[in-house]
Amino acid sequence: MADQLETLDLNSYAALGDSFTEGLNDPAPDGGFAGWADRLAGLLAAGRPEGEFRYANLAIRGRLLDQIIAEQLPQVRRLAPDLATLCAGGNDILRPGADPDEVAERFENAVVALRESAGRVLIFTGFDTRGVPLLKHLRGKIATYNMHMRAVADRNDCAVADLWSLRTLQDRRAWSEDRLHLSPEGHQRVALLAARSLGLATADDPAEPWPTEHPHSPAEVRQENIQWAREHLLPWVGRRLRGESSGDHVEAKRPDLLPL
């Protein structure tokens, strides 16, 4: 984790969202998941007396925007953190027929409510999916949603972390094998971006180029795509058809503000 160069006047942080914020595919020492939000909390806590900074992570994989509003917003009212992060709506946008304008309107309603309970709020744009099979066809909808996110941030005095413009996240090494969730290094780069979006200087740069990698042949790429479809895409589609969610029976990993 990068060295911290300064501190912010924040003593507590609550993260809301879905699998992205829960930290899927970034293994933690306790056998669960860490993720960018845990890593951001570490950056914010660095240099402080032990136990002074408190952190909660309310995010649960598979959650849609309305579920996040219903389940997680009331918890933020109870916790009243100095900082809250909200990344939501991505699972809604992935659904057929989803209207990014309508999703963004519901998102802004959530931000307005969140601003009443948290001292500062950080939101995120969506990723650029230009190189992702199938999801690249949703790029226009995601771009439209992102324009709304920037407007929501302006109207509600929120910080915004621009994932779309972070080109290092377009490298396949930023993503885990399922191509839907970040790798540990991808989560670290998002944590650094989030910290900088809040005004915290970091020694490491989230836009630092990746080391040069030997390019894969077309045959290797095809084989990887076939294996990905078999192991990850088909099960994901199957859950959608059955009306199941990966977050069924999953609870928030850190529901209370606890010292790091």
Rank of each mutant, 00 (worst) to 15 (best):
A201C: 07
A195Q: 14
D162G: 02
R172I: 10
L198V: 10
G186I: 09
D171M: 05
W164R: 06
P184Q: 13
A194L: 12
R173S: 14
T168H: 04
A201R: 15
T202F: 02
R167W: 00
R196Q: 10
R172G: 08
H181G: 00
D204W: 11
S165D: 03
W164F: 04
A194I: 11
A195I: 11
A174I: 03
R173P: 14
A194H: 14
D204A: 12
L180R: 04
W210N: 00
P206R: 08
W164D: 05
A194G: 07
H187D: 04
E177A: 15
P184D: 12
A203E: 14
V190E: 06
A203M: 11
L166S: 01
L182W: 06
W175Q: 08
L193E: 07
L166P: 00
L198N: 04
Q170W: 07
R172Q: 14
E208V: 04
L182N: 01
P206V: 07
L182I: 01
D204P: 09
G186R: 11
R196P: 08
E185N: 06
L163W: 02
E177G: 06
T202N: 03
E185I: 11
T168W: 01
P184K: 09
G199K: 09
L198C: 06
L192Q: 12
G186S: 05
W164V: 02
P206D: 03
V190N: 07
T202G: 02
A195H: 13
L163I: 02
R173T: 14
D171V: 11
H187N: 11
P184E: 06
D204R: 15
V190Y: 04
D171E: 11
A159N: 12
G199L: 09
L193H: 04
L182Q: 03
V160K: 07
R173Q: 10
R179K: 13
S176N: 14
D204H: 14
R173E: 13
P211A: 01
P209C: 00
S176L: 14
D162F: 02
T202L: 08
A174Y: 11
A195R: 11
L182F: 10
W210A: 00
D171K: 12
L166E: 00
W210D: 05
A195Y: 10
Q170G: 07
A191M: 09
L193N: 09
S183D: 01
L198Y: 04
Q188W: 05
W210Y: 01
P184L: 09
R179C: 07
E185V: 10
V160L: 15
D178P: 12
A161K: 06
D171W: 12
A161M: 06
A203S: 13
A191G: 04
P209W: 00
A161Q: 08
A159R: 15
G186H: 10
Q170M: 07
Q170D: 09
E208I: 04
L193S: 02
E177N: 13
L166D: 00
R172C: 08
S197Q: 05
L169K: 06
G186L: 12
D178T: 10
R167N: 01
L182M: 12
P211N: 05
T168L: 01
S165V: 00
G186T: 13
A191R: 07
L182A: 02
W210H: 06
L180V: 13
D204M: 15
V190I: 12
A194M: 11
